[in-house]
Nucleic acid binder design. Sequence first.
DNA 1: GCCAACGTTGGC
DNA 2: GCCAACGTTGGC
Length: 159
Amino acid sequence: MRYWLMKSEPDDCSIDDLAAMPEQTVAWYGVRNYQARNFMMNQMAVGDRVLFYHASCPEPGIAGIAQVASPAYPDATQFDSSSRFFDPKCRPEQPRWFNVDVRFVRKTRLIGLPELRDTPELANMRVLARGNRLSITPVDPDEWRFITETMLELKTDEL
DNA sequence: GCCAACGTTGGC
DNA sequence: GCCAACGTTGGC
């Protein structure tokens, strides 16, 4: 099992929005970056755990835990001319963009970006790297354990 | 709204 | 294959 951090704009889909979804599951559509797409296509597996991160908002940071709920499949919005994610270069017989489904696990206290940056154990987190713009980044098992067990005081059966 | 950083595009 | 121009991300 791998661990990930996935950014979402809470105006779009917050952790509360995810919890309120049917099946508490949402399609992670709209990724238009090859590196992030490749993580979903090639490395994610159903059951992988996810740090749900609120981005582009007044208090950016980790807001909850989620899990990967489906394999990657073609992102429907790439063919939808009414979508802001429409990609006119894409044809259904050769989809370019893919997404997984993500399911709610739990809401947590907000671990804000300043707190993440102030935590020496997380100094090497991908998402904190200078200039990082990826909306999906891998999380090391040690980082996952530190965040969930030490910072959030969650037990294994709560994840 | 600003801007640093990075990805993508396209001319050559 | 280089690289300038442009677009996007996302914190502040």
